[in-house]
């Protein structure tokens, strides 16, 4: 048990840095992240610009902070929709069983038959590359996994003796669902939501890197990396800092997620 302590502390610290930067970046950044200043383009990190400037002279630190806000918003909203959709559909499928279950799960499995990155790409080709399109596409790509977990948890809880005991006490099915089944499904949902937050962040960055995310000039870590690529030989910092941000945020989420998972369900280790 002691071993997970550093996980939680390091993970928590990284995660709070990330969330803190995102929050601050919403209201204040050292410079205007969008303002062009061609006189000071491609400046190395220094006193004026701590993390340097990009090819249009924009302050890298300011852009990173603004991008953190965008990424957190997209990821949180996406995970929120995935949880909402996943719990609703999962409960309906697991609770109704029979044909409702079969139809919901057949559609769900078909969505799961696409790798989530590909599904997001496909949906983006329909919705178009903008903030709402990305949330819609990522939400649809990630909901099926949540549906599956919630349904599985509902189905396995249904067989538990305390659920049968609730039936024997004369409780209605709806009461049993809300009082006994849902609270006990919470663990797996939280565990999956945490790791999903990381996956969504990663996929969103990858899409941005491919040029299919939030369109420039609005900064995201992904599109900052993409535009840094041609200048990377002379301006290394442009390539290093956004990637470091993504990696450290993901590391924080992963470590924190491991700690949460060990707390809720030691059997899910390593998935």
């Amino acid at each position: 048990m002691k071993r997970h302590q550093p996980n939680r502390i390091i993970g928590g610290a990284l995660l709070s840095c990330f969330l803190g930067a995102a929050l601050v970046g919403r209201f204040w950044t050292p410079y205007d992240p969008m303002r062009l200043d061609l006189r000071s383009k491609l400046q190395a990190p220094g006193a004026a610009h701590w993390l340097g400037t990009d090819e249009f002279g924009r302050d890298v630190l300011s852009r990173l902070m603004a991008a953190a806000g965008t990424s957190v918003s997209i990821s949180l909203i996406t995970v929120f929709f995935a949880v909402l959709g996943g719990v609703t559909l999962g409960v309906i499928a697991g609770y109704a069983r029979g044909w409702t279950d079969r139809i919901v799960m057949a559609l769900n499995d078909a969505l799961l038959a696409f790798p989530s990155m590909l599904l997001a790409l496909a949906l983006l080709s329909v919705t178009g590359a903008n903030m709402y399109g990305i949330i819609l596409a990522l939400g649809m790509a990630y909901t099926p996994a949540m549906v599956r977990v919630v349904r599985g948890s509902v189905l396995s809880l249904r067989e538990r003796e305390f659920i049968e005991a609730s039936r024997l006490m004369g409780n209605s099915a709806a009461y049993t669902m809300f009082r006994h089944i849902l609270p006990n499904s919470l663990g797996p949902v939280i565990v999956l939501a945490t790791s999903m937050f990381g996956s969504v962040l990663l996929t969103e960055s990858a899409l941005s890197f491919l040029g299919l995310g939030v369109p420039p000039p609005a900064p995201t870590w992904g599109n900052m990396l993409a535009s840094a690529r041609p200048h990377i030989a002379e301006a290394m910092w442009l390539g290093i800092f956004p990637g470091l941000c993504i990696s450290l945020s993901l590391l924080g989420i992963n470590l924190f997620g491991d700690a949460i998972r060990d707390r809720f369900d030691p059997r899910m280790r390593g998935l």
């Binding site: 960055s205 992904g222 990696s247 450290l248 993901l250 590391l251 989420i253 992963n254």
Partner: peptide, 18 residues
């Protein structure tokens, strides 16, 4: 492995390229 898992391939690739 946790560290490697957290580094996105596009950045890792970029760094290797660099």
């Amino acid at each position: 492995s946790t560290l490697l898992l957290s580094v996105p391939t596009f950045w890792l690739g970029l760094m290797i390229l660099l």
